Simulated assay, not measured.
Amino acid sequence: MTKSFYSAVQSRRSIYGINDEKIISDERIEDIVNLVVKHTPTAFNSQTGRVVVLLGEQHKKFWKLAFESTKQGLAEEKIDSTKKRFESFASGYGTVLFFEDYSVVESFQEKFSSVEHYFPVWSHQASGMLQYIVWTALEQEGLGASLQHFYPEFSKEVKESWGIQEKWELIAQLPFGNPISPPKEKLIEPVEQRVVIVK
């Protein structure tokens, strides 16, 4: 199931009700992520984005790890609700982990010292574009997803098994799957208050 680009932009929303029914192939997911990583723009063509796609049991393992890491700092009354939330993410088919490679950021800071303080900002801007395009592309394929921001502690063994290098900084996670519930109502501010056209 595919949609037009504009339709996908309009319908891309946070979908929290997902299950692990396989609606597109793993190969198709890989093709989408590869294409987006290859063609998302970055400042100075620095190509700082790194992506790890977890499917099946590896995806479930991540959300278990995220919960165990997050619950350490939670108030007792928030543990159960947080666990349910993480379990809802784990009920999907996969998760895309978005990283920025700070060894690359630092190398560009050294090359272009006059603007070195901008490179971390540009890096995050590029990551935002990468996240958005992957999210919209998965929406176009009929998948539901929601963008999350949790920072679990990765053990050395997990890093090695998932190919995560020391200088990769985790920015966001995108759990996705077959959508089984509609998105929540969304209040959209009048576009006239947000856009200025000058002729």
Results as ranks from 00 to 15, higher is better:
20 D>Y: 00
168 W>I: 00
71 K>S: 14
143 L>D: 06
151 Y>M: 11
66 A>Y: 03
40 T>C: 12
18 I>M: 09
58 Q>G: 12
183 P>R: 10
129 M>K: 05
87 E>C: 04
148 Q>G: 11
137 A>C: 11
53 V>N: 01
86 F>A: 11
66 A>R: 09
160 E>N: 14
106 E>T: 12
138 L>I: 07
104 V>A: 09
44 F>Q: 05
116 E>M: 06
40 T>R: 13
190 P>V: 07
174 L>Q: 09
82 T>D: 14
81 S>F: 14
76 E>P: 14
127 S>N: 11
92 G>T: 05
160 E>M: 09
64 K>C: 02
164 I>F: 00
110 E>K: 12
9 V>C: 11
98 F>S: 10
154 F>C: 09
172 A>F: 08
35 L>I: 04
11 S>K: 10
36 V>M: 05
179 P>C: 08
120 P>T: 04
193 Q>A: 09
104 V>Y: 01
92 G>V: 04
53 V>T: 12
180 I>D: 07
146 S>V: 15
84 K>V: 11
101 D>Q: 06
43 A>T: 00
197 I>H: 14
41 P>V: 05
89 F>R: 12
22 K>M: 06
69 S>E: 14
50 R>T: 02
108 F>W: 10
175 P>S: 09
168 W>S: 00
155 S>R: 06
115 V>I: 10
135 W>E: 00
33 V>N: 01
11 S>H: 10
62 F>R: 05
151 Y>W: 13
113 S>I: 06
58 Q>N: 14
1 M>E: 15
48 T>V: 08
42 T>Y: 04
141 E>W: 08
46 S>I: 05
3 K>H: 13
65 L>V: 14
67 F>G: 12
89 F>D: 09
169 E>R: 15
109 Q>T: 02
183 P>M: 05
115 V>Y: 10
18 I>K: 06
56 G>P: 05
45 N>Y: 05
101 D>I: 04
143 L>T: 01
119 F>H: 04
133 I>P: 02
131 Q>F: 00
179 P>T: 00
21 E>R: 07
1 M>A: 15
17 G>M: 04
133 I>C: 02
143 L>Q: 02
35 L>V: 02
53 V>S: 08
192 E>G: 10
105 V>C: 02
100 E>W: 07
